[in-house]
Amino acid sequence: MKSIIHILICLITLSAFSQNDKRFEEGNDLYNQGDYTAALEKYESILASGKHSSELYFNIANAYYKLNHVAPSIYYYEKALLLDPNDKDIKNNIAFAKNMTLDAIDTIPEVGISKLIKRTTNSMSYDAWAKLAVAFVFLFVIMFIAYDFAYSTNKKRLTFLASNTALLFAIVALFFAFHKFQLDKSDQPAIVFAQESKIQSEPNFRSSEAFVLHEGTKVQVLDTVDVWKKIKLSDGKTGWILADDIKMLKKF
């Protein structure tokens, strides 16, 4: 009985994949014909089925860009970039889309040791750093055992040095693993969808207006209080925005 259910589940899954592939091709055909609205309907029906990919987000973003919808185009380019951060086409297109935004926000450059640490941390994923730390711990144990069984002074010196080096690298890898975990946890990007949003200095309408943002601007979410989100811009400015005015990028 279980095998029959398993077969039925496999058939349903294959059928869903086949339908999504068909919709994707139909959407591409409509896009090439210049019917961007109809293409979006095909692409978004795939999203509604629970499937997502960088290619799908990229095509949705392209369609919104052709329709001059600033916020959705940047939003879906950014989502595509999250799944495929090295894709040159996505990077090129998102640069064009950002030219349509009204807000010119500077970026505070990182310098010195903090820049080096962040670049090193982001060179690998959290899982990769954790696995590297485990590998060095394993190497430390092997070298420590070898030191214990070594008879000559030279071998003891060599294995002692190797074990301590492995332990040092394990600690460093563990540091970068936790740092990467914290960076990923604190990285909560969002895109402003409201055509114009007044940013308050406090999470209420009675507070003073800090500044104004427009659709398509990327922000970092720092905190949440009721219907308000505390945001930070790339130039360091902070303020509170209505939650309904933005869409979080990491929600798939």
Rank of each mutant, 00 (worst) to 15 (best):
V141H: 07
S125D: 13
A210G: 01
D89H: 15
A166P: 00
A162Q: 03
T121R: 10
E209N: 11
A190T: 02
A128V: 08
F211K: 04
T107Y: 06
E209F: 01
N92P: 02
D187V: 02
L116F: 14
E209C: 05
N93D: 12
A162T: 06
L167R: 03
F136I: 05
M143K: 14
F193W: 01
K115Q: 15
N154M: 08
A162W: 02
S152C: 08
E202F: 04
L116R: 14
S163Q: 05
F175T: 01
F176C: 00
S125Y: 14
V111R: 14
S163L: 00
H179E: 09
L167D: 03
P109C: 04
A210S: 11
I113S: 11
I145G: 09
K155G: 04
K180V: 04
A95F: 13
T159W: 03
F138R: 08
T101D: 01
R157Y: 11
L183N: 11
A166L: 00
I117W: 10
F178S: 07
D103R: 03
A150S: 15
S186F: 03
S207A: 09
A97Y: 02
F160W: 08
A150R: 04
V141T: 13
I191H: 01
D187W: 12
D87Y: 06
K180A: 08
V134C: 10
N204K: 04
I199K: 00
L174E: 08
A170P: 02
N86I: 08
E110S: 12
M143H: 15
H179Q: 10
W129L: 06
D87I: 06
S152K: 10
A130F: 15
S114Y: 15
I199D: 01
D89W: 13
W129F: 09
